[in-house]
Structures are given as C-alpha cells and as structure tokens.
C-alpha cells in the first residue's frame, strides 16, 4: 500500500508526535525529572515513520537507545512511553527499563537496546522464528552507523545471508558515532558497501524523505516475505541534537547544523504536503493534533503513581 497523500498527512503528524515527545523529554530532563541518560532522535523521524509504517503491526522490530521515534512509530502507546521516561508504574516497562529499553511485544517491538548492535541478532532471531513457523512476518533491525564496528553486527550479517532470513537491516547513518565523526573510525563508512561484501542486497536511501524511506522498506518487506532473504538499507540522515543531553557538540559547527535544518524531515514533509494540495492551515491542524497527543501523554504520565519498592523484585523470572 503506497503512502497516499492522506496517509502522508498521518505520517507528518506522527513525525511531529515524535519530535514533540523528544522536546518534552528535554524539558523534563532540564527540570531534573528524568533519571539516567536521554539520546534524542530529533532529525531522524522519517527513518522511523517511513520504516515502521511500511511493515505490519505483527512484524518484529528492534532498535537502539536512540529509538524513541521507532518505538512510537511501530505503535508503542505514547502515554506508556512518557510514563516510562518519568519512571512511573504505568510505563511500558513499569519503570524498570527507562529511556533506552522501550519494549512492547504486542506491537512487535522486541526492545530498544543500550548496546548499539546487540538488538541486530535479536531481530535476526525473530526472523528465524518466523521462517521456522512458516509465517510471513519480517523483522526490522534499526541501528546507527556507529554499530557497524561491533563484532556481533558483522556476525549477524553473515548469519542473515546464509540462512536467508526475512530480515531488513536499517542503518541510520547520521554521520556521527556518539561524539566522533564516523569517517574517522570506520573503514568503509558507506556501510551498505560492507553489506554488499557479505552478499546482501543493499541500497542507500535519503533517510530524511519519509516517502523514499517508506517505499524502500515496503519493497524490502515484500521481497523478504516472499522468501527472498535479507535486505540492507542505509538511510542517510542527520542528528540535529547532540548524542545525549550534555553533549557539548565540539565535533561539528553551528553552521553545519543550521544547514542540516533546511533538509530536516518534518520541514521537507510539510513542503511536500503543500505541493500535494494541503494548505498551511492543514499543517497547523496536524501540529495541534500532535501537540494534544503529547499533552495528554504528559498529563497521564505525571499523574501516574511511582512503582512500589517491592515491584523492584518482580519480573526477573517468568
């Protein structure tokens, strides 16, 4: 199903929900209401929405700590996500996982991970399960280009090809591995070329174009569902904020970031909607709808109870 102009409006609103979610978290963080670290995905909303919307709810997905957008796009309830950030008992992990571990298997979200490549074999395993169960589910694994130098990533590429897994690897290449330019630390920084070397079918797409992202993942999923094996998608994007709260961003110039803002996915999607016949009022309405979803989630999260100390001792074993 192509991303029709009507659905593109929904995608625009979904990207705004993600953007506003991250902005709200930043505010809460600055107020000292968020514990631990927060790794924002601002600027990378199109890879999340384009990718996750191109597959089914019962398809699997893993991602990393920069995965708030992907989790929400896959269907994680915004209220449960916000409550988890605030360490509430109504959070998706009852306050036990926090920012880096959003999980909801009911929407196929097998977990965000704090180890950059660790979720890749999990997605491969879910893809293997689908293959063994003779189902047509596919698995998406999101990771950054900073993950391609971990051994388990390279091992998983090999496994996916030899077992012809229905697996779609999505590398969000945002040019920086944490706080270091990736070209300084990566032998072949165009990561899809590495995947080629493993025998993957691979493509590079404009990750800030939600339609391009959607189309790439949709056709990859069709191929994988039909038993055609894994596909590697390198989505070129840009992280507009720092690696995490407190990142002084000495590795790039303000000019570079300002220039990247001209190409950021929400601005671009807005322009595209105007071309397709939407009015400025339509965009304002979509913005207000996203705002309301976030306000509701924040109200829900703030009014939720904190977990009881005794809850620390449950959910270890089944």
């Amino acid at each position: 199903m192509p991303l029709t102009p009507e659905r593109l409006q929904d995608a625009y609103r979904q990207m705004l929900v993600i953007r506003k979610f991250e902005e709200t978290i930043r505010n809460l963080y600055q107020q000292g209401k968020i514990r631990g670290s927060f790794h924002p995905c601002v600027g990378q909303e199109a890879t999340a929405v384009g990718g996750c919307w191109a597959v089914r709810k019962d398809d699997y997905m893993t991602c990393t700590y920069r995965g708030h957008g992907q989790a929400l796009a896959k269907g994680l309830d915004v209220r449960a996500a916000m409550a988890e950030m605030l360490g509430k008992s109504t959070g998706c992990s009852k306050g036990k996982g926090g920012s880096m571990h959003f999980t909801d298997p009911s929407v196929g979200l097998l977990g965000a991970n704090a180890i950059v490549a660790a979720g890749v074999p999990h997605a491969a395993g879910a893809a293997l399960a689908s293959q063994l169960q003779k189902k047509d589910n596919v698995a998406l694994a999101y990771f950054g280009e900073g993950a391609v130098n971990q051994g388990v990533f390279l091992e998983s590429l090999n496994l996916a090809v030899i077992w012809k897994l229905p697996l779609i690897l999505i590398c969000e290449n945002n040019l920086y591995s944490e706080m270091t330019p990736s070209h300084e630390t990566t032998s072949v920084v165009e990561t899809h070329k590495r995947a080629d070397g493993f025998g993957f079918e691979s493509i590079q797409v404009d990750g800030n174009d939600v339609e391009a992202m959607y189309n790439a993942v949709e056709s990859a999923a069709a191929k994988a569902r039909a038993g055609g094996g894994p596909i590697y998608i390198e989505a070129m994007t840009y992280r507009l904020w720092g690696h995490m709260m407190g990142d002084p961003e000495i590795y790039r110039t303000k000019e570079e970031v300002a220039k990247a803002k001209e190409n950021e996915p929400i601005v671009r999607c807005g322009k595209r909607l105007l071309e397709l016949g939407c009015t400025a009022d339509d965009l304002t309405r979509l913005d207000s709808e996203a705002e309301a979803i976030i306000a509701d989630a924040l109200q829900f999260a703030e009014s939720s109870a904190v977990p009881e100390p005794a809850d620390a001792f449950t959910d270890v074993f089944i």
Partner: peptide, 13 residues
C-alpha cells in the same frame, strides 16, 4: 555472540 543473540530473538518470537 550472534547465534546466542539469535536464540534470544527467536525465544522472544
């Protein structure tokens, strides 16, 4: 590491 990880993913699925 990858085949133990694959086991984890398959178990979750």
């Amino acid at each position: 590491s990858s085949f133990v990880g694959v086991g984890i993913g398959a178990a979750m699925a």
